[in-house]
Design a protein around this nucleic acid. Structure first.
Lengths: 337, 337
DNA sequence: TGCCTAAAATAACTCGATTTAGCATTTATT
DNA sequence: AATAAATGCTAAATCGAGTTATTTTAGGCA
């Protein structure tokens, strides 16, 4: 095992001090008035032997790690995986690496993960926050660490975030169903109080009550195991045979719902119409294809990483936090009449 | 910003040496004959003030980072995302964190990523290798670093890997189509020489030639941009109107293919039958659902991380490398008659 | 030649841990 | 009583960088 070169080896080989090498490699040659000739000699040699500074040592000394911590709810969910992918690309292009993990929307797990990231001296955080994590996030911010949230925000926490206009999106989709003449429109969503879900619910309620229809809401717990989510949905549909349209709160629920409807032998849209929050390849390819509220994935990823990189570059914490609200796109397909 | 405690602070507060603290915290108290009473006092205080050793400093000194480097082809692909998710879970449970990146199957990018991982003193590597990366992988192994490959292996490189029996899987699937009476079975795959694709091709060829039918192979280049993959597929199908069944080399191609077929107005399975390598939610939910060769995702993830953790724990490099070959499952659905 | 100053380079300290080598003190052995 | 061994702990070196404070060298000028 060929031993790795250190800055001391470089210095010795060239018969100069490591201080000089360090200055040159960190672009402080001018400032430190080191002769052009020496600079050139050092750079040439460094390149020749392929020396790379040990980033651990560097991080220890400088306190910067060039690592971004990314916490999404579930990396195996297409929505988060796609965003993670784009964030990753941009981060690498800007000299940052990503450490990621899935939170499962579990508060304690997330707390542990944040602690671990801190311990690793992560430079910045991108977080899809679960409930009850306000204090931990605030602590990061108080300590001057850049934090960007997305998918949802935390009302009490002042930081950068990127979300979509959830309320208007479901309002608009529900209106669309109402205008098509559906009378018993159900809303199937996750049972949590976070902003994105709360807003989606509000949008649905607003449209329904405006039209003097009756709301019909089913809240399901989130599980990795699909059966634990399809069973309650099936039970709900059996209890409410009058339902003629469903708005699903996200893609996971939408796909579960599709499976249930197939199992029950329901025809779409003849027996029941569908709209799902979050677009997904499945909805485009299934038959009939499902109308979906598409989040602007590229724009979300772009905004998130741009916000974070800005914070990382402008070392000063200029107080104004940015809130970005993007709009969605109702992609109409044949799952409604 | 409250300054973080260091081991020196702890030592000073207790009026003992930091050496002692370090020994105690690393479970070497017994070995170093430190009194029960002192051990207890130190542990209690450490807990009380919530001291956590700085892992950067620790890594610098010990050369271990407790980080696993994960390189997949594309984290936004469902197959890799799901496996990554499970690897992540197991890794965290065993005290390891994951740094990941997508290689795009690009040799140079992968080389750079491996260099970066090395620089970060990553303890172990899980890699889905692109072509031409043999030397870099061998170098890791020669230096005693644990490497586990999956999805494909590299013939010249002796290391642990986990793959599926690709050849038999496509042979079996093709036979299935032949037995159903299809005569013009096309194979649409990626244009690369890696083991997994080569074996899938061989399996198809073997079945076709055994039955004295004609092979009909289309190789497509991989692109992130979907249109660059659907266009050639469409062209191929127009050139070969006699095709009555298609075997797709992976899920990405399968979904592209579905889109093309829908566009061309082909009925499945009346006009054309389908089987796709890799199962995927889309294939289950589309109409008709698509027969797929399902890889045992859970087992793959499990084997991969188990192999790596074993290597990491048994510090000695016991020479024998393990090759795991898992079998697939042909999930028959209605895309064939 | 001698003195001063600017230019060029460096010794030594720091980050926060682990680890090696060793120092007192007490207890056991002959 | 002298020596050896066990006990309990610690000073100092180390990992590989960045940074501060300081020294050496070269050149200009009287």
């Amino acid at each position: 095992m060929k031993k790795k070169l250190s800055i001391v080896d470089i210095a010795n080989s060239l018969n100069i001090s490591k201080t000089t090498v360090s200055f040159i490699l960190n672009g402080r040659a001018r400032e430190k008035r080191i002769s052009e000739e020496l600079v050139e000699r050092v750079l040439k040699y460094v390149k020749e032997v392929g020396y790379k500074p040990n980033s651990l040592a560097k991080s220890l000394r400088t306190g910067k790690s060039n690592i971004i911590g990314l916490l999404v709810q579930d990396i195996s969910n297409n929505f988060f995986a796609t965003i993670a992918r784009q964030i990753e690309d941009r981060a690498y292009k800007n000299g940052y690496k990503i450490i990621y993990s899935s939170t499962d929307n579990d508060t304690q797990k997330t707390q542990e993960l944040i602690a671990m990231f801190r311990d690793r001296h992560v430079d910045g955080y991108i977080i899809v926050p679960p409930e009850g994590i306000e204090e931990d996030i605030s602590a990061l911010i108080k300590d001057g660490l850049p934090v960007v949230l997305f998918d949802r925000y935390m009302p009490g926490v002042e930081t950068d975030y990127v979300v979509v206009d959830n309320l208007f999106s479901t309002y608009n989709a529900t209106r669309y169903l109402i205008d098509k003449g559906y009378k018993n429109i159900a809303f199937i969503s996750f049972n949590n109080q976070q902003t994105q879900m709360a807003d989606r619910l509000s949008g649905y309620k607003k449209a329904i009550t405006e039209s003097k229809l009756k709301t019909n809401i089913k809240e399901v717990d989130f599980y990795q195991d699909e059966k634990l989510m399809t069973d309650p949905i099936q039970a709900f549909l059996n209890e409410h045979p009058e339902t003629d349209a469903i708005l699903f709160g996200n893609n996971r629920l939408g796909t579960c719902g599709l499976k249930v409807l197939r199992k029950l032998g329901k025809r779409i849209p003849e027996d029941i119409a569908l709209i799902c929050f979050d677009d997904y390849e499945v909805f485009e390819l299934c038959n009939p294809p499902v109308t979906a509220i598409a989040q602007p994935i590229d724009a979300i990823a772009d905004k998130v990483i741009t916000l974070l990189l800005n914070r990382l570059n402008t070392s000063v914490e200029n107080g104004v936090k940015q809130q970005v609200i993007l709009s969605t796109d109702l992609r109409i397909r044949k799952s409604t009449k």
